[in-house]
């Protein structure tokens, strides 16, 4: 039963561009990007118990690096993609060393501070980043010579990347390393006593999450063909965090669902409702009250209860 549903979902996702208009296909692409981003944040928040309010750093830096390398230095998309991801991952390694000195609210604040510094640099160093005007006129890559300029082509590209990302992150969480991460989240002292190195486990997770954040950033800049400092802002980080929590942190699918929900409210419902911000806030409050652990765990519980 579960497998049939999953297969149907997969078929529906693949075939979407055949029955939906460009606008909806593009909306779906944005959801896929937001889903990768949220899933990467979930590695920290959900499995690692590290609530980060600066995850937009990785999305933004990868996007900026790719934008600068391709548009200003004339690099090819392949090389700049590799370099951007490597650069972002290296940065995550460095940030991890700083941020992991703290836990709890301190960790949240230090990630926020680091991302604010990047945001400030992107804004202020207009000679490099073009400041508030952002970098426009970007192109999408052409993997194997296939143009991604149509809505459908980009969607399929994003779907492939997202599926692979989902797989890789789910495998990570389900692996023995993932178990030790959850152990460190719940019982750091006991884990240390058992001979694990909690700091190292957290750091590796931090870097891995930064890597996938960078991947989502690449897709983000390919999709928008434009990058602006707001992509690095606390608001972007907070939005992703809210998506993760609303969907269900620490679950495989929850963050994707939450991210999709935030995106839908922001980009779709807002066409019909001026007060969409208020609705967004009310939805968050509602979710917490009704399903304190998030949508996906909440619904799962509901569905499991029914047959019995």
């Amino acid at each position: 039963m579960k497998w049939i549903a999953a297969a149907l979902l997969a078929v529906a996702l693949v075939l979407l561009p055949f029955f939906a208009g460009d606008f909806y296909v593009n909306l779906a692409s944005q959801m896929l990007i937001a889903a990768i981003f949220a899933l990467s944040l979930n590695l920290l928040v959900g499995y690692g118990g590290m609530t980060s309010l600066g995850h937009a750093s990785y999305l933004g830096v990868a996007a900026y690096m790719s934008a600068l390398l391709t548009s200003r230095y004339g690099w090819g998309h392949g090389a700049s993609a590799v370099f951007s991801i490597l650069g972002t991952t290296a940065m995550a390694g460095f940030f991890g060393v700083i941020a992991l000195r703290a836990t709890g609210l301190g960790f949240l604040m230090i990630t926020l501070a680091l991302s604010q510094v990047l945001w400030g640099l992107a804004y202020r160093m207009s000679g490099v980043t073009n400041g508030d005007n952002g970098i426009g006129g970007l192109t999408r890559p052409m993997p194997f010579g296939i143009s991604l300029d149509s809505a459908a082509a980009f969607y399929w590209f994003a779907l492939i990347v997202a599926s692979f990302s989902f797989l890789m992150m789910t495998v990570f969480a389900a692996s023995s390393f993932g178990s030790s991460l959850k152990g460190v989240r719940d019982q750091p002292r006991r884990m240390a006593a058992l001979g694990f190195n909690p700091w190292m486990i957290r750091w590796i997770t931090f870097v891995y999450a930064g890597f996938w954040g960078g991947v989502s950033g690449l897709l983000y800049v390919y999709y928008n063909k434009y990058i602006h400092p707001t992509s690095l802002s606390t608001t972007s980080s907070a939005e992703a965090l809210l998506g993760v929590i609303a969907g269900g942190s620490g679950t495989a699918a929850g963050p994707a669902v939450g991210a999709a929900l935030v995106l839908l409210l922001k980009n779709y419902v807002s066409a019909y409702l001026d007060r969409w911000n208020m609705l967004l806030g009310a939805v968050f409050v509602f979710i917490v009250l009704v399903m304190p652990t998030g949508i996906v765990p909440g619904l799962t519980k509901l569905l499991q209860r029914r047959p019995r």
């Binding site: 707001t230 608001t235 807002s270 001026d274």
Partner: peptide, 21 residues
């Protein structure tokens, strides 16, 4: 009428909505 919220990425989505939808 579409609300860009003063955010570039939202402005783009809204422009797409106006054009494509």
């Amino acid at each position: 009428s579409a609300d860009t919220a003063g955010v570039p990425a939202t402005a783009r989505t809204k422009a797409q909505e106006l054009v494509e939808k």
